[in-house]
Design a protein around this nucleic acid. Sequence first.
DNA 1: TAAATATTTTGACTTAGATCAAAAGTTTGT
DNA 2: ACAAACTTTTGATCTAAGTCAAAATATTTA
Lengths: 188, 188
Amino acid sequence: MCVSLINYLQHVTPLSEPLRDKLEQIIRTKIFTKKELILKEGEVSNYIYFIESGFARSFYTKDGKDITAWFMAENDVIIFVASFFTRVKSYENIEVLENTTIHYIDHNELEQLYNDFPEFNKTGRLLATHYYVLSEERLYNMRRQTAEERYYFLVNKYPQLILRAQVSHIASYLGLNLETLSRIRSKK
Amino acid sequence: MCVSLINYLQHVTPLSEPLRDKLEQIIRTKIFTKKELILKEGEVSNYIYFIESGFARSFYTKDGKDITAWFMAENDVIIFVASFFTRVKSYENIEVLENTTIHYIDHNELEQLYNDFPEFNKTGRLLATHYYVLSEERLYNMRRQTAEERYYFLVNKYPQLILRAQVSHIASYLGLNLETLSRIRSKK
DNA sequence: TAAATATTTTGACTTAGATCAAAAGTTTGT
DNA sequence: ACAAACTTTTGATCTAAGTCAAAATATTTA
């Protein structure tokens, strides 16, 4: 059932057989239907998630407005970064935008795994590095730049995202209001 | 000479004696004077740096303008993230803003270190995670928010930075022009 | 320590994107 | 297949921040 996740991890760096067996034991699977929340703000994020299929977004509320922080699709590892790693309450939610199947691992079990299988730290290091690079890239795109530049960066870098997400979510992700994004898109 | 870096790493997670010895062997030290560039855009970042003392900033050029990406001070680990990890040419520079002493490790030697001392992957994982959290935090502050909100977030989170960096650099980091930041600051 | 250079502040005006409002188009459920 | 509920587009203003210009301060350097 969780073959996709183990394959993914195996692809990051090879795993020993006992480690794979242990992973199979601790990975849980859950199916969410459109609009369900995988995680709610105010909770400490206790799981690291992996999307087997589907589409989701993280968002938070600011001055009554719903602001999308990022989108996640097949083969993405997702975490409330700050909350999962530093054990503080999350200010973000994760909402499923299409029916979605996820695999997840409990925070304590993951810690235990790092202890029992020190080799797994390499997987953790490479994954953290990878997501760190992506985060810096999004940060880079966010600074300066006009609304139009930011939008077309996203279009080029994540074309499938543009097709799947709705205008209002893309707009709030880019720090625009939806009318502005609508106008940018209709300019040709 | 590189005691400060080894202490720092030891603080992340304990290191074995042979690992410490190896680290002492491969860590290099260099002193930069104000305005020198530690690294130039167009180069592949070959080193991971650690600031023992001093102050620096990373910046890039966009439409002829110099834009500060971040600041680094004592006990900060610094890398051109994308370039160091993915081995592409960096679009960023690192400039020393005060006389600065740095320790650095060569990319290949670091890879070798991970191979020879697999335990060091734990240090790498924890450091990558830590900097990932900080990156997401900066990203969070960058989105939405008015110029004033962004500035005061920085003031509260990094008060020493505000004292050390010049207005024009802080302004470009916040995505503002310096006149706008000057006006925000003079509002009391 | 005075001149040269760099940085910050202040002022007048412009503009990209926000806001408010309503029409048009799409999706969803029964 | 129709009504209800969303989502997107279009239009008319408004405003926060940008631009250009010049004066006021601070910092370097000789």
